[in-house]
């Protein structure tokens, strides 16, 4: 571990620790570093992913507000210091791995939708998210239709009818609607060394 490799998180100890904590091999962690480098240098080249950089990658523009992007960023940012570091990036992407258990994916989405972090997904939160997606996609819905969609959703998901969805109710709901977790699996992650083969020029180890 030279000071330079420590700085760039490329030292073998760091890489193998990350591999042991996640579903990635050491070479796959190195390949993810290639993606991380690209994202973290797109606006400010400081080895950290800022919200604007994630926004630029996902929405093709660093400007404007997107509720869902904010939530994704906050969940990636484990240390809650306003930036995504490499270890946080690898930890979060591990949940998106095709081999990650559905329960982990379901928990991640639950946290994502639990906007106020109360341990429940409340009707008001769902309404806020539906309004946000309508604005994002330039769709218009009457208030009546919006309430009808919320009624239908809660009739299906909120089995104890207390006006909010608990984690247990959410698990049952996603098991009935597995397509809701579709975004949570990134097939690219199974072949990440093929997607970013340039890791080979910097590798510290042969898996």
């Amino acid at each position: 571990c030279s000071p330079e490799s420590q700085k760039r998180l490329r030292c073998y100890d760091n890489l193998s620790l990350l591999a042991s904590e996640t579903r990635f091999s050491v070479n796959e962690v190195e390949a993810l570093y290639e993606l991380f480098k690209k994202l973290s240098s797109s606006i400010i080249d400081d080895g950290l992913i800022h919200k604007e950089e994630l926004q630029l990658a996902l929405l093709r523009s660093p400007y404007g507000e997107n509720l869902f992007l904010d939530r994704v960023f906050d969940l990636f940012d484990e240390k809650r210091n306003g930036v995504i570091e490499f270890d946080e990036f690898v930890h979060a992407l591990s949940i998106f791995h095709p081999h990650a258990p559905m329960e982990e994916k379901s928990d991640f989405v639950f946290k994502l939708y639990d906007l106020r972090q109360t341990g429940f997904i409340e009707r008001e939160e769902v309404k806020q998210m539906v309004i946000a997606i309508l604005m994002e996609s330039d769709m218009r819905l009457s208030d009546e239709l919006l309430e009808a969609i919320l009624d239908k959703t809660f009739a299906d998901a909120d089995t104890d009818m207390d006006g909010r969805i608990s984690k247990e109710e959410w698990k049952v709901f996603v098991s009935k609607h597995p397509s809701l977790l579709k975004n949570m699996t990134l097939p690219y992650l199974k072949d990440i060394t093929t997607v970013f083969p340039s890791f080979i020029f910097n590798t510290e180890v042969e898996d």
């Binding site: 993606l35 994202l39 990658a57 996902l58 929405l59 997107n66 509720l67 869902f68 992007l69 904010d70 939530r71 994704v72 992407l93 998106f96 994502l112 939708y113 769902v126 998210m129 539906v130 946000a132 997606i133 309508l134 994002e136 996609s137 769709m139 819905l141 239709l145 009808a148 969609i149 919320l150 239908k152 959703t153 299906d156 998901a157 709901f173 609607h177 397509s179 809701l180 579709k182 975004n183 990134l186 690219y188 997607v195």
Partner: peptide, 26 residues
């Protein structure tokens, strides 16, 4: 599917902010 038959989470899951596959596009 039309919004009437959709549940709210189906709509929400279509946000581009949630589509991390975009990160891997060259």
């Amino acid at each position: 599917a039309s919004p009437v038959t959709m549940n709210a989470f189906e709509l929400i899951s279509k946000s581009r902010g949630l589509d991390l596959a975009t990160l891997f596009e060259k």
